[in-house]
Amino acid sequence: MKQPYRTPAISAANKFFKQTPEKISTDYEKAELALYTNMERLKAERLAREAERRAQRDVKQ
């Protein structure tokens, strides 16, 4: 049920103290995130190595 009147102070207080649902992460979600992050890091390292090799090969030619 809505309040019959709403002052700017009440609106500001409600926005400031608004309840936000807190996401509960499980151990599985944490492990999945760690795995994904590690895969992305390894992919970036591999692409950097490949680019460096290509650059060295182009300099030699």
Rank of each mutant, 00 (worst) to 15 (best):
I24Q: 04
P21C: 07
K18G: 08
R46D: 09
E45H: 08
P8G: 03
D58Q: 11
T37H: 04
P8A: 05
R46P: 05
Y36N: 15
R57F: 08
F16Y: 15
P21I: 12
K18V: 13
D58N: 06
D58I: 09
K2Q: 07
K2P: 07
T26P: 00
P21Y: 08
E45N: 07
S25L: 10
K30D: 03
A44Q: 11
P8K: 11
A51W: 00
D58K: 09
A55N: 00
A55P: 01
E52Y: 00
S25T: 07
A9Y: 09
D58Y: 10
Q19F: 15
L33Q: 13
Q3S: 12
P8R: 09
Q61N: 07
A31R: 03
D27C: 10
K43P: 02
I24D: 06
K2L: 12
Q3C: 13
M1P: 01
A44I: 14
R54F: 04
S11C: 00
Y28N: 04
A55E: 02
L47I: 07
T7H: 01
R49Y: 03
Q61Y: 08
T20M: 15
K23E: 06
E45M: 14
E45D: 10
L47P: 00
L42H: 08
Y36L: 11
V59P: 04
I24T: 11
P21S: 07
K43T: 14
T37Q: 04
K18N: 09
D27E: 13
P8M: 06
M39R: 15
R6C: 10
D58P: 07
E45G: 02
T7G: 05
A12T: 08
E32P: 00
A12R: 10
N38D: 14
Q56C: 04
M39D: 14
T26Y: 00
L33R: 13
K18S: 13
K15A: 05
V59H: 11
S11N: 01
Q61D: 05
I24V: 09
T20C: 13
Q3Y: 14
E50N: 01
F17R: 13
Q61W: 11
R57M: 08
N14K: 01
S11W: 00
Q56T: 02
M39I: 11
K43C: 04
F17W: 15
T20D: 15
K30C: 09
L42T: 12
A55W: 06
A31V: 02
Q3L: 13
N14T: 06
A51L: 00
V59R: 13
A55K: 08
Y28A: 10
N14S: 05
R57W: 09
I24E: 05
E45T: 03
F16S: 15
